[in-house]
Write a protein that binds this DNA or RNA. Structure first.
Lengths: 350, 350
DNA sequence: GAGGTCATTGTGAGCGCTAACAATTCATGG
DNA sequence: CCATGAATTGTTAGCGCTCACAATGACCTC
């Protein structure tokens, strides 16, 4: 019941035209919503299309128009919340503009894998590519690669030579760190993300700036790899500093914050009474951590829309609306991990 | 430095042929790895290709061969761990077979959205589609829809009229429930997933069977919507049954289990000493819940490979290797939430 | 009623590639 | 030295569509 194998070859526009008693060009006009087609003719054609189950051939159309209306996306770690959300938002935004999205997911972003991915997408006829490339190495690779289509980077930071769209990570870190200072903490410690990630560097920079502006010497900084496990290990180390000046930690993402929370708990350290913890990302689970996590939310939907808009500008040869580097404001979400008040789940906006 | 706008039109095969002093067909042969090309000629052609930065035109090739080598994927909730992992695995498997993947992510799977997605993918020239369609309504919609290409469903359960690939949810539920019974619990309660999800139904069925085979009357069953919040609410209700026969809960996914854990904790109920909790999915965070969560792991990589293999069989007109419904075994991962022993994070396999 | 305009439809030429077949070259053996 | 067949290369005809332009006819104006 699912397929229609009435003929071996699917019907062509000419077949439809013959059936409707018009020329193939008229069929094309109907399909293309051209104004100058008599209603009666249009109806005839539509009826024939319906009856034959005709569908326009993508390849022929693309060949004739020289447009595939397909965008490529290169991503890695697509099972992480951030990249997955970005991917989703990108596809949605692209579809809204009438474009298809062809994805290549990489296990790791190196010059080689990135280059292969771009080659592959090029063979796939994409008109442009979005690279979700948060590692610095990836940005450099991107800048050095030749490709016959425009590329927009997401999450690479704004300093790049490649047009990019970013959430303002530095601002997010300032919000979180500032919030902890405002809550009365003298110093704020920091568990940073991987050195190679631009977003990690930006978050660290925002944290450091905020402390320095407040006249506080930034304490020792730990480093993790985004994983809960690395957060757990860092948390064990942090637990050793409780009572020696540690009262607040800004963790570079929620997953590591989860590990930190667990390590602190196991060490008998209470959150937030003994140590306040703030994260970054606002993953859906963050609200249900023990305790619910204060964190920084990024608007991926906007990231997706802006990225697609920028890429399409580049494809159409338009001057991008604004600069070629877009920054999006993140938002602080305060929950119990930094505050003794425990809100009801579901009450917080998220 | 990134683009090569040396000529307005990108070079064609004929341009390369002219430069190499051969016919365009010879260029095509070189690109197609045809055996009967003299090494010397091949070298000439490759040099010309390199020099001109030539890339074969996707649309022209697809038109001539009548093959786009593109598969479609329809998915919803792609930011959830399961669907995101499946998506990733599908793309990887498709790429390994030389296919492109064009994704359409839906916010909700209804007959209408599904139908639109299939239409759209059809316009995009896909040769086949994978539908990550865990809702029953989606399966029905799929069965009733006409489409000019084969469709393979993932996560729909094996009973469907549509060829499908599934993790054996029932078996997973039996593993978890059996584990709890074996640990000495007299009864196992159950927080089920949304009624409309086949996977939820299968997990519930596995739970119920296991209890019945053990001669135990299944206790009241709660229902959530996969979210931590719904788990939290159910957890509050469950907390009221502690001391009245409730000692173990099998929760239909990890995120709800997270909510349950929090609710129990807030109610002063200890896990696993007072109530053991098992989840389903083994999301990366599960190991770092408080306490680390016993759960059921699904091998998405295998799901991806088998789905693609099945779809390609259908596309090529081959009889699918085996039946048209593939089941994949899940795996129980035991952690502290069902056992008084607390393993070190990182020690558990995952 | 001639001339003009507009709406509507048709015709022909590609888009850049591959498949099928034709033509050429080359090595080999009788 | 030429026939024989294999290896190598070239030629031609589409694949199914859109674009540019031509053709037709209806309608209007003076």
């Amino acid at each position: 019941m699912t397929q229609v194998p009435s003929q071996l070859r699917p019907p062509t526009m000419a077949d439809v035209a013959r059936m409707a008693g018009v020329s193939h060009q008229t069929v094309s006009r109907v399909l293309g919503d051209h104004p100058n087609v008599r209603d009666e003719t249009r109806a005839k054609v539509l009826r024939a299309i319906e009856e034959m189950g005709y569908r326009r051939n993508f390849s022929a159309r693309a060949l004739a128009t020289r447009r595939t209306r397909t965008l490529g996306v290169v991503a890695s770690n697509t099972t992480l919340y951030g990249p997955a959300s970005t991917l989703f938002a990108l596809e949605e935004a692209a579809r809204a503009e009438g474009y298809f999205v062809s994805t290549v997911s990489l296990r790791e972003l190196t010059v080689r894998t990135l280059s292969e991915a771009l080659d592959r997408l090029s063979e796939g006829g994409v008109e442009g590519v979005i690279a979700i490339a948060p590692q610095r190495s990836a940005v450099e690779a991107l800048a050095g690669l030749r490709h016959p289509f425009p590329v927009v980077a997401v999450g690479t930071g704004s300093g790049a030579e490649v047009p990019s769209v970013n959430v303002d990570q530095r601002l997010g870190a300032r919000l979180a760190t500032g919030h902890l200072l405002a809550a009365g903490h003298r110093r704020v410690w920091h568990l940073a993300g991987p050195e190679d990630w631009q977003e990690a560097a930006d978050r660290t920079a925002g944290w450091r700036e905020t402390l320095e502006e407040a006249g506080v010497e930034p304490p020792m900084q730990l480093r993790g790899d985004w994983s809960p496990l690395s957060g757990y290990r860092a948390g064990q180390e942090l637990a050793g500093w409780v009572g020696r000046g540690l009262t607040a930690v800004f963790v570079a993402n929620d997953q590591m914050a989860l590990g930190v929370l667990r390590a602190l708990r196991e060490a008998g350290v209470r959150t937030p009474q003994d140590v306040a913890v703030a994260g970054f990302d606002d993953i859906p689970e963050a609200e249900f951590f023990a305790p619910p996590l204060t964190t920084v939310r990024q608007d991926f939907s906007t990231v997706g829309k802006r990225s697609i808009a920028l890429l399409l500008d580049l494809i159409e040869g338009r001057t991008p609306s604004g600069t070629s580097s877009v920054a999006i404001e993140p938002q602080l979400v305060v929950r119990a991990s930094t505050f003794p008040y425990i809100p009801q789940p579901g009450a917080a906006p998220g």
